[in-house]
Amino acid sequence: MTPDLLTGRVGWVLGRLLLAAATLLLLSAVIFTVTDVLPGDAAARLAGPDADPAEVARLRADLGLDRPAPERYLEWLGGALRGDLGVSAISGRPVADVVGERLPNSVVLAGVALLVAAPLGVAAGLLAGMRPGRRADRAVTGLSVVVVAIPEFVMTVLLIVVLATTLGWFPQVSTAPLGGRPWDAPAAMVLPVLSLVPLGFGLSARMMRSTTAGVAATRYVEAARLRGVTGGALAVRHVLPNAVQPVIQVVAVLFGGLIGGSIVVELVFNYPGIGLELQQAVGRQDLVMVQGITLVLAALALASLLLGDLVAGLVDPRERR
């Protein structure tokens, strides 16, 4: 990489970081506004239906709900920048502690699912794209469409019925051992992981198939064929490096989406992740917890996107010239 290209790359990274920071700032305002204007009175809900107006007013003052929304937003944002996401009005626990406890569980769940799904999807998409219109292409395309179309809830139920209830191979719930993490009992993680694998496989396979077909039709690959390069050598050495870049970005997006979007899987299997905690916070109308978790998930998604762009740039053959 030439010095000019390196300088341009550093400038690009700094620009992306600034854009990510501005996007997160905008998202924080949207998150606070949406949760702040939810119907109902949070203080009245917490006080209970039998509370008198004086008690509700006192609780509203304790929660800071009697102050203007912009003032509360700036205070919340300042606390978030210091790592203080507030305290749950329901459990009394700091939101940052809950996130620190639950988020690693979801990160591992999504990470393991992608470690299984992405290589399978890339391999299947590469095979299909090298033979467009043939039997392998039709099989991979059809399978990817089917698995992406199946809702997560249906997939989890099928896995429970077949692998847990009928065959008894795995437990139906994924509760962590006392004082431990879910991966301390690996068998309990199998079904949650398998529930997320089809989506990751389907999306990565479809993207890889599309980019592979485009690269395989270029003059560069045709010239390699004329030099006698065929089969696996052609696919791995000449097509894969040029076709995998968009797939990396898709996987990065998918990783962030699986962490925040695996609520159904975590709920069905009682998996102690951040998605389950968010669902419970919404059900309890714990707005402080909802705000904090949603902000962290937004930041994680942006970080995943940025990392995907960086990795895609590193593996792009044009960046190494």
Rank of each mutant, 00 (worst) to 15 (best):
A233F: 07
G232D: 04
A216K: 05
L226S: 11
A213D: 03
A223G: 08
G214C: 00
E222C: 00
A223M: 04
M207E: 08
S210M: 05
V251K: 07
R206C: 00
V247E: 14
V236C: 13
E222Y: 00
I248F: 12
R225T: 01
Q245P: 00
A252W: 13
T212W: 02
P241T: 07
P246H: 12
A233Q: 10
G214P: 01
R225Q: 10
V221M: 06
R206H: 08
E222H: 01
T211C: 03
R206W: 12
H238S: 02
V253Y: 11
A223H: 03
A216G: 02
G228V: 07
R237A: 14
R237T: 12
A213E: 12
A233T: 13
T212S: 07
L203S: 08
R237F: 05
V215N: 09
F201W: 04
G214V: 00
G232E: 02
V250N: 15
T212A: 04
L203I: 14
T218D: 04
T230F: 15
G232H: 05
T211S: 15
R227S: 11
Q245H: 09
I248T: 09
P246R: 07
E222A: 04
G231L: 13
Q249K: 09
N242M: 06
V251Q: 06
T218S: 07
A243W: 07
L226C: 03
E222R: 04
T230A: 14
A235R: 12
A217K: 01
A223P: 03
P241W: 09
R219A: 15
A205H: 11
T218L: 05
A217I: 00
Q245T: 15
P246T: 06
L234P: 04
V229K: 02
E222Q: 06
G228T: 08
M207V: 15
R219E: 15
R219M: 08
S210Q: 12
L240H: 08
L226F: 02
V239M: 08
A243L: 10
R225A: 01
T211Q: 12
R209F: 04
V229C: 03
A216Y: 04
Q249E: 08
R209M: 08
L240R: 09
A252I: 14
M207H: 10
R225S: 05
A216M: 05
P241F: 11
T211G: 09
R227Y: 00
R219D: 15
E222I: 01
Y220D: 04
T230K: 12
A205G: 13
A224L: 03
A217W: 01
T211M: 10
M208H: 11
A224S: 04
S210R: 00
R209W: 07
L234G: 01
G232Q: 03
Q245C: 13
V221C: 03
V251R: 06
E222L: 02
Y220M: 12
A213H: 01
